[in-house]
């Protein structure tokens, strides 16, 4: 489909200029464009009709992965291809980001799509919202009223809904420190390889010296609530050493506490089976990654 009419286009070079560009239009009239991998579809289908696009491609401050002494900051405009290729994410607490980013769509989509765009769009079956939710990040936003930070749990409200003000720019996704002895993973299943998932599972586990789980965060993608944590499943993981029986018990608790819906892709029973199977794989690799 051909895009709806767009009156204006601007390409700021700094965050301040981007905020000023958004603020120069009425609320809801101007929209940021990052990779455009969701927004262009929405403009073509007339789901949104922005009068102006503020293109963030030249804002260098929004790009890149910066880590120092356990702290990590990922610029909102960092693309999937960069996260997928970031060697420090091969294991440990941030590995779920690489798992997720390296299987979004296809190469061409990963060359354009950004982590910030995925979080701001918050599609119900998107991969990065669930992965970042499991990792418990803090998001930095700048708007007309200045800068603020917000926990990812509070930022993601529901499918296609976030706590971002319409004139705010998402700047970065941050972690103050990397938890010790921790590992994470993400895995999804869709109708074709690397498609938007029917179900995606993300988890972060922290282990005691004896290998028992002392903290866990578990998030799902693809159910009616969109990216969601499952506290009952997290609680059931405490004390587990990653053995199949205890993981399966925790995943039963997950299934019992979420809305497993039926649609033309998968019925409720199959969705439950996907949560169990993907969950078993994800938790097994999160435990393994926490150990090395």
């Amino acid at each position: 489909m051909y895009p709806a009419k767009i009156d204006d286009y601007s390409r700021p070079a700094t965050i301040a200029e981007a905020v000023a560009a958004l603020a120069s239009f009425g609320v809801g009239e101007a929209m940021c464009i990052a990779g455009g991998m969701s927004l262009m579809q929405a403009i073509k289908s007339r789901l949104v009709r922005p009068a102006c696009l503020v293109d963030l491609q030249d804002v260098a401050e929004l790009r890149g992965i910066r880590g120092s002494g356990g702290a990590l900051s990922i610029g909102a405009m960092t693309r999937y291809v960069e996260i997928a290729g970031h060697a420090p994410f091969a294991s440990g607490p941030f590995a779920a980001l690489r798992d997720a980013a390296s299987h979004v769509g296809d190469r061409q989509v990963r060359n354009r799509g950004t982590i910030g765009g995925s979080l701001c769009w918050n599609y119900m079956a998107a991969c990065l919202p669930a992965a970042v939710l499991a990792l418990g990040a803090t998001l930095r936003l700048v708007g007309p009223g200045g800068e603020r930070t917000i926990a990812i749990d509070d930022f993601l409200i529901g499918p296609l809904e976030t706590a971002r003000g319409e004139q705010e720019v998402l700047v970065s996704i941050d972690w103050k420190s990397a938890p010790a002895r921790s590992g994470s993973a993400y895995k999804k299943w869709g109708l074709v390889k690397d498609a938007l998932p029917v179900v995606g599972v993300a988890a972060l586990v922290t282990l005691e010296a004896n290998g028992a789980c002392s903290a866990a965060r578990l998030a799902l993608a693809g159910l009616t609530a969109g990216a969601q944590r499952v506290p009952a499943g997290e609680a059931a993981l405490l004390g587990s050493k990653g053995d199949a029986a205890s993981l399966d018990r925790a995943l039963e608790a997950v299934c019992a506490n979420v809305d497993l819906h039926s649609d033309h892709w998968a019925d409720a029973a199959y969705r439950g089976q996907l949560v169990r199977q993907l969950g078993r794989d994800v938790l097994t690799s999160a435990f393994a990654r926490a150990k090395n």
């Binding site: 895009p3 455009g36 262009m40 061409q108 989509v109």
Partner: peptide
């Protein structure tokens, strides 16, 4: 699919102004 600055991208997902 074309190359934009050497990278493969789908040109129906971009505006000419970008």
């Amino acid at each position: 699919t074309i190359h934009l600055d050497g990278e493969a991208v789908k040109s129906c997902m971009l505006l000419a102004v970008q």
